[in-house]
Write a protein that binds this DNA or RNA. Structure first.
Lengths: 144, 144
DNA sequence: AGAATATAGTGGCAATTGCCACTATATTAA
DNA sequence: TTAATATAGTGGCAATTGCCACTATATTCT
């Protein structure tokens, strides 16, 4: 039976779910899920940010980030410090444990992109990356 | 704050979640969720198929399709007929109620794609669609 | 034919996500 | 300054999804 990718909507769904399955199994050895890995990634990228900044950068609901951050603090990957200037916020910082897995997570994500683009030329791969970024920016800019 | 789409993984996540949010709110008036709408779409596209065929075409776990199909039967969008040649399977067919929403669902999905590609030229939009299909096919072909 | 294996579908559980209502703190307006 | 409004974060609920174990039926092998 042919797997017809007749609609971009279906293609996007498949790419999302597959890349998460790969990241989940890749990070399983560290007791991390894909969602947790992504938060570790961004916290290490910026070294210090608030939950709200993570929310905006990943374009996820703030309650989702609150739950993930709580788990990551419990498992020792991040620290929540209180922000002196604004008592409503936390400063989220990576721990040594987070820095230790950071390169591995980056590599896992790269590997997933290589998998899905293995049929493409280098030029196509770059164009794909660019168009994904353009589309995602347009999606975020929508007022829903 | 800039919304940096620095990684294709993040872009794909955002596009998946946004397109589902749009489809959910678009189909809400019919009491349908995005996941249900997608199954109605494929059932109408093929007019008659088994759950397993839906599973393979959407590249979802078979238990997910079983749950969605059960709900759609309860709400009167599809019929499950027994297959004479294979007692393990059902023949899934759309009802009139499904045909009635079919054009609307297709339009909602088109609209979502227009939203995310509104900054693109027609040529870029076509190329984006093609590269998404290539990537999704490669993802499905992986043995995980 | 009978045994081993493969396939279609179900049900339970956990993780992710979105939405909503809520609290607490900041900021703005009067 | 005080009142109105905005923002950061939490907790509950429902829907989606993936994985696993399971049953029932088909198919293949000997």
């Amino acid at each position: 039976m042919p797997y017809i990718m007749d609609s971009p909507f279906k293609s996007i769904s498949i790419l999302y779910r597959k890349s998460h399955i790969w990241l989940n199994s890749g990070c399983g050895g560290y007791g991390l899920t894909a969602a947790q890995a992504v938060v570790i990634l961004i916290v290490c990228d910026f070294e210090k940010l608030t939950q709200d900044e993570i929310t905006k950068r990943l374009s996820l609901d703030k309650s989702v980030i609150a739950k993930t951050v709580t788990k990551l603090e419990e498992s020792g990957y991040i620290l929540r410090g209180t922000n002196a200037r604004d008592k409503r916020t936390y400063d989220i910082c990576p721990t040594e444990k987070a820095w230790a897995v950071y390169p591995f997570i980056k590599e896992q994500i790269e590997e997933g992109f290589r998998r899905m683009t293995q049929q493409m030329t280098d030029a196509e791969r770059e164009e794909f990356k660019r168009l994904l970024a353009v589309a995602a920016a347009a999606a975020v800019a929508q007022e829903d």
